[in-house]
Design a protein around this nucleic acid. Structure first.
Lengths: 276, 276
DNA sequence: TGCCTACCACAACATTTGTTAAATATACAG
DNA sequence: CTGTATATTTAACAAATGTTGTGGTAGGCA
C-alpha cells in the first residue's frame, strides 16, 4: 500500500480567470478539422458528416495544470475535446488512495462516455496546462444519432479505450515495477506518434514520480528507484516532472511492449449502413 | 511476480463433440427475448427493434469449462452472447503471466468490440460449462446501424464495461490483497443480482484460487491465505472451485465497495433520434 | 533577495506478497 | 475401487515493494 496522500483540490474556483493562449490563436475551424481528423482515423466520413461536425457549438476553455475538467459524481452537461496539453483520469478509494487510469493526449475526447452515462465515475484532471473545447452533451448525442458514421467512430474510440484499460490491467497486475514503468513510456510515445504529435518514439512524459506511481500501482519512492537505475543504464533521461526515452529498443525490451492492443492501422470493416 | 504457470490449452479440438443441454431445451425465441431484455435494460426499444433482433441468425454452441470462445489475434467472424454459465477474458504477457481482466455472466455479450475491431486483443474462455449463441459479426454491424436504439444500447454496454475496467485498475493498483478479494466478490454478486440471476447478494463464485489470483494481481498462495482468514472470520464459506459470501455487510466493508461505477438503475437520457 | 512550495534523492527499515515445494484433499474416469 | 488430474493447504524462506523521514534543489512569488 502506498502512503496515503491528500491530493489538494486545486480546482478551477481558486484559479485566475480564463487566460487566452498568447502564443497562437486557435479558431473554431481548426478545431472542427481536428475533430474530423480524429474521427476519420479509422472510418471514412462524408461531406454531410463533416458539415454536422462543423455545426457543433464549441466553447474554448483553458485549464491550468492540476485543475479538474470533470468531477466524479457530477452529471455532466458537456463533453471535452483536448486541443492542447495532456490530461488524465483518476479514481480514488474511500480512504484516499488514488489510481490514474488513463492518459489523454490532444485529439482525444476526454469523456465521450458522458453522452450516455448520467454521472461520471471518475475525475478528469489537466496534467499540463490544457486547452479544450467543450461541446454540449445533447449536441454530441444528436450528432452520434443523426450521423451514423460519426457515432460509429466515437463508439470505436471507446472500444480502443477499453483495450487500453485491459492492457493496463495486465501491466499492473502481472508485470514488475521496472516493466511497468517501461510500458507506460512505450505506450505514451507510441500514441503520441500515432496521433502525429511527435516525430520520434522518444516520449517526453511530463509526469511527476508520484503521478507515475499512481498510474502504475507503485509508490513514488519506488518509481524513483526504477527511474534512477534506468537513467544509469542509459534508457532514459530525466528532468523535473519529465521523462524522456533515449533508448527506444532497450525500453521496449524491458516493457515487452506489443502495440497490438492500440489497434492502430485499422480501417473499419464494411460501409456504414445509413438508415433502415 | 507470481509463478510462471503454463495454462494448458484445453481448447475445443480435444474435447468431445457438442453436447446438447439435457435438462432443459432452449430455443431461439427464448434467446431473442434474453437479448431484447439485455439491451432494453437502459434503453427502450420499439417493435421494429425487437423484430430486427428476432431476425438475427443464431448458432447455439456448448463450451466446456476452460475452452476458448475467442482467441487473441483471431479476426473474429462471430459475436457470442452468453446464455448459460460464466466466462472470462484473459491477456497474457510474452513470458506467460496471465491476467484475467473481466468476468462475464449470462446475458452479457462477450465480444461486442469485435463488431468494429479487426482482431481480438485478448482471449475469452469458459469459466464453467457455457452455452452461447453466436451471431455473425456482419449481422450485428447491420443491426447496430439500422436500428439506432439497439446500436446505442450496445455502445452503452461497452461504456459500462469500460467503467468496470477502471474500477479493476483501482482495485489492483491501490487496494491490498484482502480488499481486492472482497471487492471482486461484491462486484460479482451485485452484477448477478442486477441481472436477475440471483435473489440474494451472496455470490457463488466458481473460480479456483489461481484464477482469482490472476484476476486480482495476486498469487494463488496468497489468495489462499486471504480466503482462509476470511472463512475463519465468518465472511465467506468455500468449496472446491467456489466461494460464497455469508456476511455481505462485512465483505462490503472490507472491500469499501461502492457500486456507482456499475451504472445500474440508469435510464438513458433523451429519445433516440432516428434518421438524419 | 529570500521564503515557500513542489518535486526529487536517498537511506534504513518494515511488511506484504511472492517462491518453492511438499502434503493432502476431492472429483472424475475407467 | 483405484488411479489420475485438479485443487487446496501449509510451511519456510526470499524478494519486491512500501514506509518514514530527512535533506536538497529549482522555481514562483512577495
Amino acid at each position: 500500500m502506498p502512503s496515503l496522500v491528500r491530493y489538494p483540490d486545486r480546482g478551477d474556483p481558486i484559479l485566475p480567470e480564463f487566460v487566452p493562449n498568447g502564443d497562437r490563436t486557435i479558431d473554431r475551424n481548426q478545431i472542427s478539422e481536428m475533430i474530423i481528423a480524429k474521427l476519420s482515423r479509422r472510418n471514412s466520413l462524408d461531406a454531410e458528416d463533416h458539415l454536422a461536425i462543423r455545426g457543433l457549438s464549441m466553447d474554448f476553455r483553458h485549464h491550468f495544470a492540476s485543475s479538474y475538467l470533470v468531477r466524479e459524481g457530477q452529471p455532466p452537461s458537456r463533453c471535452a475535446f483536448l486541443v492542447e496539453g495532456y490530461a488524465y483520469r483518476q479514481k480514488l478509494t474511500i480512504d484516499g488512495h488514488r489510481t490514474i487510469c488513463s492518459l489523454e493526449v490532444p485529439g482525444d475526447f476526454v469523456d465521450l462516455q458522458n453522452i450516455y452515462l448520467r454521472e461520471s465515475d471518475h475525475d478528469v484532471l489537466a496534467l499540463t496546462d490544457v486547452i479544450s473545447v467543450d461541446i454540449p452533451v445533447a449536441e454530441m448525442r444528436v450528432l452520434a444519432e443523426t450521423a451514423p458514421a460519426v457515432g460509429r467512430a466515437m463508439w470505436v474510440d471507446g472500444l480502443i479505450e477499453g483495450a487500453i484499460f485491459r492492457e493496463w490491467l495486465l501491466n499492473i497486475g502481472r508485470r514488475n515495477a521496472r516493466s511497468r514503468v517501461a510500458h507506460i513510456l512505450c505506450e505514451f510515445s507510441t500514441r503520441l506518434q500515432a496521433a502525429g504529435l511527435a516525430p520520434e518514439l522518444t516520449a517526453d512524459l511530463p509526469m511527476t514520480q508520484e503521478q507515475l506511481g499512481d498510474a502504475l500501482g507503485l509508490t513514488s519512492v519506488h518509481v524513483n528507484r526504477i527511474l534512477r537505475t534506468m537513467e544509469a543504464e542509459g534508457l532514459v533521461t530525466r528532468g523535473k516532472r519529465q521523462i524522456t526515452i533515449t533508448d527506444w529498443q532497450g525500453i521496449r525490451r524491458v516493457a515487452t511492449f506489443n502495440p497490438r492492443y492500440l489497434h492502430l492501422h485499422q480501417e473499419q470493416p464494411g460501409k456504414v449502413v445509413k438508415n433502415r
